[in-house]
Structure formats: structure tokens, C-alpha cells
Nucleic acid binder design. Structure first.
Lengths: 409, 409
DNA sequence: CGGGTTTGTCGCAGCCTTGGAGAAACCCGC
DNA sequence: GCGGGTTTCTCCAAGGCTGCGACAAACCCG
């Protein structure tokens, strides 16, 4: 049960907060100059100077004397994320798994995606991704420091013990994914696990279609419909960290049974299965089947287009509820919803015009994802960085990449 | 469009934040001792001492040397909210309007509720409530200071201009309620306006069934179904301040038209009209009609009980979506939903067991409101205090009650 | 009257800000 | 091409504010 607590600020935490603010600013904006950080953080030149110094000492940032940029005045020192400070990100979804290494600032140094073996358990999946991660780390300079591990999982993640409580589409149940990854990569590495929808939302607000926006809803449609919400600039977590499961809003009293145990959930009407059902291909599954539908739509197949129109109405039916609930700046559609967006956008908009409050509709746009399939992986990296971003001195407990290589060998 | 900004902490703002923390602690806990405030705020004795001194100077708190309380040691100085520091709260709903005066700490000094004249416009309503407020203030000591005005309105409130954009059940549209109240009470008084559901949620987390909980959903069923959400300890606002309209989640593709322009909204299936329709009394409206239904249920009327059972399924149908969306600690039912709770609780629970994820269901309870009809008024007071709680020095710009009496005469 | 507890006060350390000196680049006029 | 003026940035020392810790005093109880 989550409780609210209020805590006073002690003077030592002022420095901590300002380190966090400066580091976050560089992380979000990428390479900056000291003088750009002054207005961005609201601190003075002096404070920025010492704090950047701290962060350089922690090997999180690098400074470089800049050459002239053509403008008058002395050029400001450049500040950039260190390319030796990285996190490892995992994206574990139904059909594929992906591994990536990301620097502070969100630059992707390397990434691999492979198809997932459905028949074997979570341990096998963890072994596989850990092996890939090792392979990626081997290619990096030996002084690279891993500051954390992030994992996006297509299932409900209970935050306090990082347990995948339920991943119906993965076939997982009560999988201690956080502990498994930690065991496989070294007990002292910091692991952050999140729901795929939540991390997709995080990624799109940091690196994608919703950069800088405070109220964002992300919808991923892979097999089911996952959701993630950024509210007031912060990820919505809920009591156990399981919020944002908008795919399981009941929308059809006469609907089909859902994997979750309920029936008539939004994802049973607006997910992949529903789409394939509507085009009369209930026996097919997976990305290939969806691609075939998109291909036929592109070719102008009237039956498919009609099915997409019907599908759009269901997408909008649920989306209207989500928008009236959250009053977002932006709704980002990922996965299948992004893929079919061109063919459903008009019908969705029409339905939303009718069902969403005018005040909300007036400013809320619905756009396809910018990050596409990489949203979750990017989000996992952002999630992994979060711990260092809030408390930069933790960077001191980062683990040398070489240590992880020895451990997992 | 809401944007995220990050700002560094300057040393002067530390004091501000700590004043806010101490004041908030006293506001929430009521009379405390200095020594109790030390663990509650995480500050040291010295800091608490000087900060309490500041707040006493601002006439927000009072100190009193305590007598012995039986425990060993020197009794700690008592700290309590000043009974002279008040806010005025308004609750404007469909059938009635209410006015109250609340001290810091949430104590209600006086309150009045009258029925609302449906046929006259918002200006008339504002005149009426302002007159009542004047009457209540006249009864208070002349050195009373009004630190703000809060209003709960049964409609969508756009925060940036405090406009009631849409209050279909009130018959209001684009009413500048904030400006009207300010004009009527004096231009220098701080006015905070909020949606009734949002303020109900605030009230229940501060003074009602959800005290101290971080993730709470409040549902008010008067004519429609209003909602309010506290997420991560903070009220969910959304981009324009119009979030939490869960009553307008579409739940029935074949549903009836809704006042909002859509159809099949949750409130068309779980609101008062739907209940009366199910018991075959579509021609009746209002609290009296609902009371009659409750009376018949109490008497064991089989048809009414069956209708309530059907109603319960619709209540749970929408509620399941809300719970999967927010993963709350607690759902608080207000208004009609609280009134009929005894007759629907079992059926609602059964349906939720089936439709809500187990992890969420395991900790989320559904309870009737503790504050009842006063929830919105209490929430309006809390909302009014919010500005002073965040920045205590603003108390210096409170307005003497006598000034308001002169102004509005 | 002694033990235990709480409070107030004082010096110390940490953090940020201010303001001035100095450095580095640009522009312009000679 | 060169030097002065301008702009912008960095660095440094002084100053103010804050919270922290330790001590002594105040207070209650047995």
C-alpha cells in the first residue's frame, strides 16, 4: 500500500537535487554548453560550474573547450555525456527480444533483436539476452562503466519486488525477472524493470513524439494493447506499479473472453486478434499476418478497408474513455496501431470528435509513434538511467563492463 | 499545452519548502507538539523551532506552552492551526449549493446548504453564495483573515482561466466562475476552482476514507458520475485540468445518448437516470427519487433489488476499467453510489473479482465515502488552502474578513 | 534531589549568490 | 594587418542563508 510522506529538505540534499537537475538537463538535451545550462536549470554560472565539475569527477559528463561558433564573445565550455557511461537495456516481448547499450544522453551504441523461443521458459530467455548483452559489451572500450540495467517486459510488473506477476501473452506468471537478470549479470548491478507500455510512454516523452510534454498516453498494440501514462510530467505508477493497463478497460458487455480472465476488454476489440477476426483471418497470428493486412489495405482491398474502418471505431471507442480520463496533450500510438494508423486515422478522429469532451479534444492530438519498435528498448534504457539521474553520486557504484564480462562467463 | 520544466533549487527556496512541509504537517495532523513535528518532517529541532516561529509570525499557527501530559520530561510546546486563519469554500452542484468556512487544519467553523434555483443563471447563484458567505463571516471575530476561496463545481473546469467550460447537468457553459467569485468577494482574494470529483478525491484523501493514501479514485454519483483521482499522492490534473472524467468512458456500444454529446458513457449506465430507468421510474429525478428506491430496497422489494443487481454489474463494469487504469489503493464511492452501496457491494465485488487484475484487486478496496455530501465542500476548502500550504509567506496577502464584508456590501 | 527528556542557543560547515578580475573570442576602424 | 572595444565566459573570494551538532538550561517525575 502506497503512503504519502512529506519530507523536509536538508541542506545536503540541495546539492543532490541540483546535481540531478543539471545531469538531467544534459541527458535530455544532449551536448550543451555551460552557459546554456544556466537558463535551463535556473542556477547561476558558478553553481553550474561546480556541479558540472562534480559530474565530470563521477565520469558521467565530459567537458571540452569549444572553438569559436561565429558568435561574439568567449565560447562557452562544451558539456556532453560521457560515452563511457552506459546502461544495458532489454526489451522482452512476445515475438522478439532485444538488447541495447545506451549512453547517457540516450545515444544507442549497439543493439540486437532476435526472435523469441516461445516454447522455453523465462530462464532461457534471460540466458539468451544476457549472452547477447555480454557480446555487445565486449565490443566496447574496457573502461566503459555500466550504471544500470533496464528491462521492458510485456506483462504486469509489481515494482516492489520486480516480479512479472502476469504476462499472459508471454505465457509468464510470477517470474522474478529483476532477480534473474541480477543473478545473471552480477549481483551489484542495479536493475530496473518496467511494463512495456509504461516504458514506451517514457521513451516517447524523452526521445520520441512527445518530447517535453507533461501529459502523455502511449498505447502499444502488439498482441494485446499495452498502455503507459505520463501524468504531470511523471510516469503514472499506481499502488503496486501496475497502472496504465488501459487495454483491459471493459468496453463491450457482449465481448469475447480476454486472456486476462475478464471479457469484452478493449484489447479484445482493438487488438491484433480483433483486427484479424474482422478481416476474416482469425486463424492467423503475428506480425506477418498484420503486415499482410496492411499490404492489402495499401492495395485498396475494399473488404480489408471496411474491416479497418470497423476496427477504427473500436479503437476510438476505448481511446475516448482514455482521453476523457487523462486529458492528455498527446496520445502516441505504437505497434500495430501505429502500423495501421494511416488507414484508421480518419475514422478514429471522427469518432473522437463525437465522444471526447471539446476542451480535451481541442488540444489532444493522436499521432503514431516516432520510435516504432525501439520504443520499449529506449524506454528501458531511460528507466535504467533514472536512478542515476535522481541521485548522481550513485554513479560511483556503477560496475565496470569488464567485471560483468567476467561474472557472466 | 503543458510542458515539463526542471528547475534547480536555490538556497532561499529551501526555507520556503521547509515552511511548506511544516505547515502541511500541522494542517494534516491538527494540533501537534514541536517534538512530534521533528520526525514528521524529517527536520531537526532547531529547524522546526525557527520555522514554527516564522509561521506564528504569519499568524497561521499558534503556540502554547503545554502542561504535563503524564509522560516524563519537559512537555513540548504545542503547535496548532490558528482559528483566525480561514478559507471560504463553495460547493455548487445541481440540486443544492453550500458555503462553508474552514480553518487551517480542516476544522469547519460554519456551513450552510440551500437548494439551488435551476431557472436562474450562474450570476444569480454566485450572488446567493456570496451573500451566504458574508453572513457566515459576520459571525466570526473581526481579526479573522481569509486566506483564499475555493469552489467545487459540478462541471469541467479549465484551470488556466478557471472557466467552467461545460457543466451539462448544471446547464452551465463557459462560465468564468473564478472571475465572478473574485468580483463579488474582492479582487485581491485568491480563488481556486475545481471540478467536484477532483475535489471530492482531495477531501477523502485529506479528511475522509483515504487519509494518507497515495493512489485513490473517488467517484461521485449525483446526476452524472464525476470522478477524481489522486495518483502518487498528487491530484491528477491533465493538460487543461480536465482529467478524471471517468463518467464519460464509453462502456456500451449500444448505449443511450449522454448529455456530453457521446453515447453509451458509463454514467448513462451507472448514473442516477440509469438506476431509475432500471426500477421503471424513468419519469422521476433527483435525490428524492433515489431515496425512494433505497427505501424500497430496504423494505425488500424484489424488483428493486433485482434492478440494483443489474445496476451493480454496470457500476462494476466501468469501475473495473478505472481500477485497471489506475491501480489504486482505494476507491471511494460518493453520492448515490455511496447511498446504494449496501445493496450493490456484493455484486460489484463479484464482478470486480472477475474483471480486475489479481495484483490490483488484491490491495484495492472499494468503500463508501466518509464525508458524504460534505466531501466537495471540504475538498474546496483544501483546494483553497493549497496555495498557502505550498508557499506559506503568501499568507501575508490574506484579506481581513471585515474587508470582504465592506467590499461585498 | 537525581534521572530522563525537551528546548534554546551558539559555533560550524555546506550551498548558493554576488560582484569583480581575468581570459578568450569577435567586430570594427585605422 | 593590427590594436582597441565589446561581448561572453570562467574563476575566485566574500557574504548570506540554511541546517546540523553539541552543550547547557528548563522542566517533570519519582
Amino acid at each position: 500500500m502506497s503512503k504519502t510522506t512529506i519530507t523536509g529538505t536538508r541542506s545536503e540534499s540541495v546539492r543532490l537535487m541540483n546535481q540531478s537537475v543539471v545531469l538531467r538537463a544534459v541527458h535530455l538535451a544532449g551536448e550543451s554548453s555551460r552557459s546554456m545550462l544556466v537558463p535551463a536549470t535556473g542556477l547561476t554560472r558558478g553553481a553550474v560550474g561546480t556541479i558540472v565539475g562534480d559530474l565530470v569527477d563521477l565520469r558521467l559528463l565530459e567537458e571540452e573547450r569549444a572553438g569559436s561558433d561565429g558568435s561574439p564573445g568567449r565560447p562557452s565550455t562544451l558539456v556532453r555525456p560521457s560515452p563511457r557511461a552506459v546502461v544495458v537495456a532489454f526489451d522482452i516481448r512476445v515475438e522478439t527480444v532485444a538488447v541495447g547499450v545506451f549512453t547517457l544522453g540516450g545515444h544507442r551504441l549497439a543493439a540486437t533483436r532476435i526472435s523469441r523461443d516461445h516454447d522455453r521458459g523465462p530462464e532461457h530467455t534471460v540466458d539468451e539476452v544476457a549472452t547477447i548483452a555480454r557480446g555487445l559489451l565486449e565490443l566496447l572500450p574496457p573502461d566503459t562503466v555500466v550504471h544500470g540495467v533496464g528491462a521492458a517486459v510485456a506483462g504486469l510488473v509489481r515494482q516492489h519486488d520486480q516480479l512479472v506477476v502476469s504476462g499472459p501473452n508471454l505465457g509468464w506468471r510470477d517470474v522474478p525477472i529483476g532477480a534473474l537478470l541480477r543473478d545473471r549479470l552480477g549481483a551489484d548491478v542495479h536493475v530496473a524493470v518496467g511494463n512495456d507500455g509504461d516504458l514506451g510512454a517514457l521513451a516517447e516523452t524523452r526521445r520520441g513524439a512527445a518530447v517535453g510534454l507533461a501529459d502523455v498516453v502511449y498505447l502499444s498494440g502488439e498482441v494485446g494493447i499495452g498502455g503507459g501514462v505520463i501524468a504531470g510530467g511523471r510516469p503514472l505508477t499506481g499502488s503496486a506499479g501496475c497502472s496504465g493497463e488501459v487495454g483491459h478497460i471493459p468496453v463491450n458487455p457482449d465481448g469475447l473472453p480476454c486472456n486476462c480472465g475478464s471479457s469484452g476488454c478493449w484489447e479484445t476489440e482493438a487488438g491484433d486478434h480483433a483486427l484479424l477476426r474482422r478481416v476474416g483471418r482469425s486463424d492467423e497470428i503475428g506480425t506477418a499476418a498484420i503486415e499482410a493486412v496492411v499490404h492489402d489495405a495499401e492495395a485498396g482491398d475494399a473488404a480489408v478497408l471496411a474491416a479497418l474502418d470497423e476496427h477504427a471505431r473500436w479503437v476510438a471507442f476505448g481511446l475516448a474513455g482514455v482521453m476523457n480520463t487523462f486529458d492528455p496533450d498527446l496520445v502516441v500510438l505504437g505497434g500495430t496501431l501505429a502500423r495501421i494508423h494511416p488507414y484508421i486515422a480518419e475514422a478514429v478522429d471522427r469518432e473522437l470528435d463525437r465522444r471526447v469532451f471539446d476542451v480535451i479534444r481541442a488540444h489532444a492530438r493522436v499521432v503514431p509513434s516516432e520510435l516504432g519498435i525501439d520504443a520499449m528498448l529506449t524506454g528501458a534504457a531511460e528507466w535504467a538511467w533514472e536512478s542515476v539521474l535522481t541521485e548522481p553520486p550513485r554513479a560511483a557504484s556503477g560496475v565496470a563492463a569488464s567485471t560483468i564480462l567476467r561474472r557472466s562467463a
